[in-house]
Design a protein around this nucleic acid. Sequence first.
DNA 1: CGCATTATATAACCTTGTTATGATACGTTG
DNA 2: CAACGTATCATAACAAGGTTATATAATGCG
Lengths: 222, 222
Amino acid sequence: MGTTGDVGTDMRSQLVAAAVSLLAEEGPGVIQARRLAREVGASTMAVYHYFGGMPQLLTAVREEGFRRLDARLSEVAITDDPVTDIGRLGLAYRQVAWENPHLYDLMFGLSTPGGYRPEAHAPPAESDGSSSQRAYTHLVDAAARAIRAGRVREQDPDSVAAQFWSVLHGYVTLELSGHLDQLDGLNQVLIPMGINHLVGLGDAPEDATNSLERINTANAES
Amino acid sequence: MGTTGDVGTDMRSQLVAAAVSLLAEEGPGVIQARRLAREVGASTMAVYHYFGGMPQLLTAVREEGFRRLDARLSEVAITDDPVTDIGRLGLAYRQVAWENPHLYDLMFGLSTPGGYRPEAHAPPAESDGSSSQRAYTHLVDAAARAIRAGRVREQDPDSVAAQFWSVLHGYVTLELSGHLDQLDGLNQVLIPMGINHLVGLGDAPEDATNSLERINTANAES
DNA sequence: CGCATTATATAACCTTGTTATGATACGTTG
DNA sequence: CAACGTATCATAACAAGGTTATATAATGCG
């Protein structure tokens, strides 16, 4: 543990947790060394002792965000309808983003609250590759199941998953930034877009519609 | 003039232009009142005299970004194949984002380089609504043409355009943030995703494929 | 126990947004 | 034309926040 996904009660985890909470409650403007330290009852030195500086702390916050996303996607049950599963993954993904929009923004944005970068231009395949990759894996697995079930044409599941992710991420960020305010986002954009995409991937229109209509039912087996 | 879209040579335009250039060349970390002022040979007071502060200046930079996006999308010709037009709009959109990723991030991100917000939580329908809406209109028009041509099922063009935008924006941001580095983004994600989406919208698979294969040809009429 | 390492606190330093104040340029007006 | 007011710009000071230096406690270990 420690390097794994548990929360922990040490100073590192406390600071990250405080940053996550403050992001949700007061926005990125209050993510400051002094504020975080005060929040956990320590001095600013804690930030430098445990992280090295604010950029590294923000990197840790970003990784925590991906861990939480992964945890939430892990809760989505695997049923005998992989297309319904995909829809539920999408809903869960959207929900995570809405619960802490600024955390989501930090996870995927190029800039950071302080103006510095989260760790240099290093490809995400290194630092947060493992965490963001884990969340991504849920989509790959679901895509693979849909292909095995004959709902999606035979092809590389990675490519399909990347398409799902693009659609989801694009919708979520546009919705969060208010660019879709004139529409009923869920029913006029996300759901039809999901159906359209699935039909293009090979699913029958009625099947895709029926499967996605089930996404709001209890998240139980079969 | 002034309130319209021309570049201009006054101090306001110079500061915005400097910010846009610096974003592209050195990233969001150097978007500072002192640096911008030095860049245009003025004192920091220029920022406050012409904008009121850094948040308002960043709002102006964001609007300039949308103006440039609109200008680039306006250059995409309207041909007799609306699906090809949509593909070319997508390519142009992606190109604009790649030419200045940090500007694109500023336009759509929730955070800003300095940690402050670009103008409060005001819905984008007010300040940059006009500029971002203008760029969005290109997609709505193309969607309407595709519907009129029978390539897309009869439906609300706004909904279709929002779907295109989500797909595009999601793909572009994931690509920019390096999350699609293991794939050939264009050929494994964007193009097939576009075809899948169009097929789901009602286009015939061969027609969608053929139309999107034309997007790289000269951007001329017919 | 003695010592090295870790952990924490205090204070100072530097950069940056901002404000206060003053000087200059320029158009307007009596 | 001269005086005035406004717009423009520069300088300097202030405040907030990241960072560093340094000192002090706590902890582990031989």
